[in-house]
Amino acid sequence: MLRKSISIVLSLGFWAVGTAQAQENIGGNKTVVQSPVVHEDNAVTIRLAAKTQGEVYVIGNWMSGGKEKMLRDSLGLYYTTPSLSSDLYMYNLEMDGVVVNDPLNVYIVRDVANTFNYFLTKGAQADFYQIQDVPHGTVAKRWYDSPTLGMTRRMTVYTPAGYEQSEKALPVLYLLHGMGGDEEAWATLGRATQILDNMIAQGKVKPMIVVMPNGHVSNAAAPGESAKGQYPINFFTPDVGSGKMEESFMDIVQFVESNYRVKKEKSTRAIAGLSMGGSHTLFTSAYLNNHFDYVGLFSAAFRMNDKVQSPVFSNFEQNLAKQRDNGYKLYWIGMGKEDFLYKVGEDYRKRLDAIGMKYTYRESEGGHTWSNWRLYLTEFLPLLF
């Protein structure tokens, strides 16, 4: 009964507030309640224009686990965060045990099979993630043929401002997502395109093309974006740890180098990835051990399925030694102190130490989060090319 009452009241509340600013003039002028509101001290107020008597909670990624109850005032329900650091934050509401989005916040992002509202606080780091008044690059969804996999697949490609008007060839970064992600993850959750626009405009990063492929090779594209249709999203697809992404990676490189004006030397290619994409990065860069001068591992996993047989894995030690001997300009590793893969990363660094393979190590606060991965990208990009 409580759930039904909440549903009725919220429906009326959302109608009264939400339709006031629709393009079609339905419902007339109503009191406008804004959510969220970012204050000068980076505290943020989230509001819900509802008169329900049930408890409503905020679940946010700035919390150290759990949820926090919304309070009541004359406008309905509200919750104010403590002062937050400069970053992008995601949250949901919980009503009668059901997790929902904030109906007053139209800014929503998907992470694997869940959607979240988000907001950005003020300050230097979040400024990289905002859309600023600077020249903007182009973001394209490109379909490419993968002969190795026997399928046509989709990737996201960023080209910097001025690429279309120039004849200059550019270096390339291949940027890989984590488990459950797809070719949209870095551009949406990672704010990669905003970061690139802003840092290139500030002269902190050299203009480059950034290629964001889909690392789940059993899928042609992001959910709902292929002939597979609208299907339940699987976090752990059958291809995880199979070596097929690494084995087919040259299909991606060859498409890019055949269809974009890019430099084709080792010194002008970089590869980086987070979590599963970090695993793909370390194995791909060793497998193609004379192709990339810049390697970035963000909270990287290692072997994700030790039952699989593949030359990517069986020859890894020899490939890694060849990568060392062939030389490279940067092997960059970032890991959060509270990351559940911390020990995996520690063991991998010992493996590198044992063969005398030089690397740069960056340890940050926090865990296995987009907050860290966005941070790592802003620190990695200026070191390229």
Rank of each mutant, 00 (worst) to 15 (best):
D182N: 15
D133Q: 12
M63H: 10
F292G: 05
D197T: 07
D347K: 14
E167C: 01
K322A: 15
V33L: 15
H136P: 00
E247I: 09
L196N: 07
G137C: 11
S279G: 15
K307R: 12
G327R: 09
R351A: 07
H177C: 03
R47Q: 14
E68R: 14
D73H: 11
R3I: 11
F119Q: 03
G27I: 00
R3P: 02
F236W: 14
S279Y: 07
L120K: 14
I195G: 03
Y174K: 08
L196A: 13
K337Y: 10
P36F: 11
H216S: 08
P311W: 09
T81K: 12
T52W: 06
K329S: 14
V312S: 08
Q23H: 07
L12R: 15
E24Y: 02
I252Y: 09
V109H: 01
A201Y: 04
I108H: 01
E55I: 06
T159N: 08
G150D: 03
Y107R: 13
A50Q: 01
G13I: 03
M245V: 12
H177D: 05
L381D: 05
E55W: 00
Y57I: 03
T237A: 15
S218I: 05
A301P: 02
Y144S: 04
V9P: 00
A221M: 09
N105V: 06
D73F: 03
N101P: 00
D306E: 10
K168G: 02
M199R: 14
V112K: 13
F14P: 00
S242A: 08
P207S: 10
L282N: 09
G241E: 07
M250R: 14
S146W: 06
N105G: 10
F119Y: 10
I8M: 10
G215V: 02
G367P: 04
S83E: 15
Y348C: 06
N29W: 03
A354C: 04
G178I: 11
A161F: 06
S85A: 14
M179N: 12
E246W: 04
A124Y: 01
S310L: 11
F380R: 06
F302D: 15
S146F: 05
L149A: 04
G162P: 06
D87H: 10
Y348H: 13
T268L: 01
G203P: 03
K244C: 02
T360H: 10
T156P: 07
L175H: 13
D251H: 07
V17W: 09
I200D: 10
M208A: 03
P171Q: 08
Y331I: 02
E246H: 04
M179F: 01
V295F: 08
L189A: 02
N92R: 15
A300R: 03
H136V: 09
S86D: 06
A20C: 04
V58E: 02
D353S: 08
R303Y: 08
K30W: 05
N259H: 15
G241D: 06
M250P: 00
D182C: 14
D73R: 12
D127Y: 04
L104Y: 00
G366H: 05
S248D: 03
A201K: 04
T81I: 04
L48E: 00
N372Y: 02
V157K: 06
I252C: 11
R261E: 05
